[in-house]
Design a binder for these strands. Structure first.
Length: 599
RNA sequence: GGUCCGGUAGCUCAGUUGGAUAGAGCAUCAGCCUUCUAAGCUGAGGGUCAUUGGUUCGAAUCCAAUCCGGAUCACCA
């Protein structure tokens, strides 16, 4: 139980004890951190009880404060300031906390709840390489998965690859026309980029063909339909669906190039998947669900044979689920895939990390499944995030205005190198260690930059301004960690300690304010994780980890650890920094960011 | 037009679910390295929390209306 909730329940029972005739509503006690300008650590707000108990703030505050301090050794002082009861938590509590957790590298992790959660993220199309927008999706999905895991969920990371459809046919036709049998091997170009180049090529040719047709007097709308390259792409798609061997073979080959490229990127990004789904296997699913819905009368059929659902009661429109010719539309396969996922291991929850442009689609998907009575409906949660835009607007892969993910990684790592060298911090490293260090700093900065903001807010990225390595960044946190490691190296201590370490420690001197503040922040880590998990928001964790590093830096500035005033203080501070390092490391790892021991 | 999301310091963002004088980072300015890593620390300036009204002891937070920006509402995916 966290300190804050402990205080809550203690105060609640204290109030019922002091005022036996009044019914104190459960959960009505508000506990918050005391503002730095006042004395104390935690604050109870008295206002909600004044009317109920017919008490004046000062009287109630003093009565409650006195009772709490007297009856409970958790507190050793209190102060009432205009309706707020500020409580000072005893040093013993914090020291007890430090002794208990100093050898626990898993501090913050919760016991397994046996709830099964699938997190689908990344889910790329196979016609182009990953771009900056995908990175937000990927980092979010990975971080949320890890946060859920550490709070006791069993997580299946899933990737649903959109490997079929007109988009890949566009790359295929452009390659057939202009590729000259080039391959990643013959060109030395990474597979996903090579296929992406032909996607761009397709659009260039498409545009010029339209222009030509318009010049010949055709309407633009018609020209868009009639352009030869487009017709050829559509023809390829038809052949693919008919199972044409040659087409399938090329399709497989080009997709394999892309997968090889993605694998390199995923590995570099440090993310992984437990379950891969391919749309070429799932795109025909969902028809039985539609048939079932028709039988149940939830869906209706028009004269032309098309199947619809009426969602007007829910403030939405009529939605098509099957075409007149009986073929699926986009949402049909999603109905089937939702069920497929659910049946994979009896999911309690199925999370979709998808951009907010699909809010409506996801809302409709969940609603339809629930109306048809599919049990998978309840667990569906759309983790919707805002798109990453450039100052000039949305990124368009068709127009080549995307910030490429691989390029971005290269740039960040180059920036890390540049700034490390500029700061003259390369001494004592081997070349190999430096390479790894730049990777750690660059990738950390990139991930943190994308994870620190609330997922649902859209973000604008300006490629002209490089991502900072100062202030609210991963680098800042990595630096704090490296400082701690440096101290521990000199003290011949490891972050991994025996259970018995520090078990004989006792204090005789009061904690300084920055020692206490640091301990207090560390104690809050589990509840931060809980909040981040409940809100599916890694940003909460970013904020916390940054504030912790900040608090450590202030602490570090005022207190020497190695040359502490006495042995007691030294031991105390060692415990503090060991847990700090452990929490920083644990928290950042959940975000997919690693921390160097030296930088 | 319907639905949904957003609007907080010059810029990028927090704001513990309704609590004290609204906080960080960047940028600007002023200090701090003979002492465990200055990628750091301390301080200053910078605010009509989009606007207006309401709810109450108390509102950036809840409600209503308005303004601005975005997404979406296909027999596309």
């Amino acid at each position: 139980m966290t300190l804050s909730s402990k205080i809550k329940s203690i105060a609640e029972s204290a109030l019922t004890h002091l005022f036996p005739n009044a019914a104190i509503p459960i959960g009505s006690v508000q506990v918050s951190q005391t503002k730095p300008e006042f004395k104390g650590d935690y604050t109870i707000v008295l206002f909600p009880f004044l009317k109920l108990l017919r008490q004046k703030p000062d009287v109630l505050g003093n009565a409650l404060g006195e009772y709490l301090v007297k009856k409970n050794n958790l507190f050793n002082a209190y102060e009432v300031v205009s309706g707020f009861l500020n409580l000072t938590v005893s040093d013993d509590f914090f020291v007890g906390f430090l002794k208990k957790e100093v050898s626990n590298q898993q501090f913050g992790a919760q016991a397994n709840t046996h709830q099964k959660v699938m997190v689908e993220y990344s889910s790329p199309n196979t016609n182009k390489p990953l771009h900056f927008g995908h990175l937000r999706n990927i980092f979010l999905g990975f971080a949320v998965s890890e946060i859920l895991k550490t709070t006791g969920k069993e997580v299946v990371k899933a990737n649903l690859i959109n490997d079929r459809g007109i988009h890949i046919c566009k790359s295929m036709i452009a390659w057939m026309r202009y590729g000259n049998c080039s391959t990643p091997e013959t060109t030395g170009i990474k597979g996903d980029h090579l296929v992406g180049d032909y996607y761009v090529k397709f659009n260039d040719v498409y545009k010029s063909e339209i222009k030509e047709l318009v010049a010949q007097g055709m309407e633009e709308v018609q020209a868009e339909r009639e352009a030869p390259i487009m017709k050829e792409a559509q023809d390829l798609l038809r052949k693919w669906e008919a199972g044409d061997k040659e087409v399938k073979k090329l399709w497989q080959t080009m997709n394999d190039w892309v997968y090889a490229g993605f694998d390199v990127s995923y590995r570099r990004l440090g993310v992984d998947f437990d379950k891969m789904y391919y749309e070429s296997n799932t795109y025909l699913l969902g028809k039985e669900i539609v048939a079932d819905g028709l039988k149940k009368g939830v869906l209706y059929q028009k004269e032309d044979g098309s199947v619809w659902i009426d969602l007007t009661e829910d403030g939405l429109d009529h939605k098509l689920l099957l075409r007149g010719d009986g073929t699926s539309v986009y949402i049909t396969q999603d109905l089937g895939t939702a069920k497929l996922k659910y049946n994979y291991c009896n999911l309690d929850q199925s999370i979709y990390v998808i951009a907010d442009e699909q809010n409506y689609h996801m809302q409709v998907l969940k609603l339809i499944l629930s109306k048809i009575g599919e049990p998978c409906a309840d667990g569906i949660f759309h983790l919707s995030y805002g798109m990453v835009e450039l100052p000039t607007g949305r990124m368009k892969s068709r127009e080549g205005t995307v910030v490429d993910a691989d390029d971005m990684m290269d740039e960040m790592i180059a920036l890390a190198k540049e700034q490390t060298e500029a700061a003259g911090k390369t001494d004592g490293f081997t070349q190999e260690e430096l390479t790894r260090l730049y990777e750690t700093i660059g990738m950390g900065a990139l991930k943190f930059y994308l994870l620190r903001v609330d997922p649902k807010k859209k973000m604008i990225f300006n490629p002209q301004e490089s991502i900072d390595l100062h202030g609210f960044t991963a680098t800042f946190i990595q630096y704090a960690h490296a400082r701690i490691c440096s101290i521990l190296r000199k003290e011949n201590l490891s972050l991994k300690l025996e259970m018995t370490a520090f078990s004989n420690f006792n204090i005789s001197e009061p904690l300084s304010s920055s020692e206490k503040k640091l301990a207090q922040m560390l104690e809050q880590y589990p509840s931060v994780l809980q909040t981040a998990a409940e809100e599916y928001n890694p940003g909460t964790l970013c904020n916390y980890v940054f504030q912790l590093a900040q608090q450590f830096n202030s602490f570090y500035d005022v207190h020497s650890i190695s040359k502490a005033e006495n042995e007691e203080k030294k031991q105390l501070r060692l415990m503090l920094i060991i847990i700090t390092a452990s929490v920083l490391c644990h928290g950042m790892n959940l975000l997919g960011i690693s921390l160097p021991e030296k930088m």
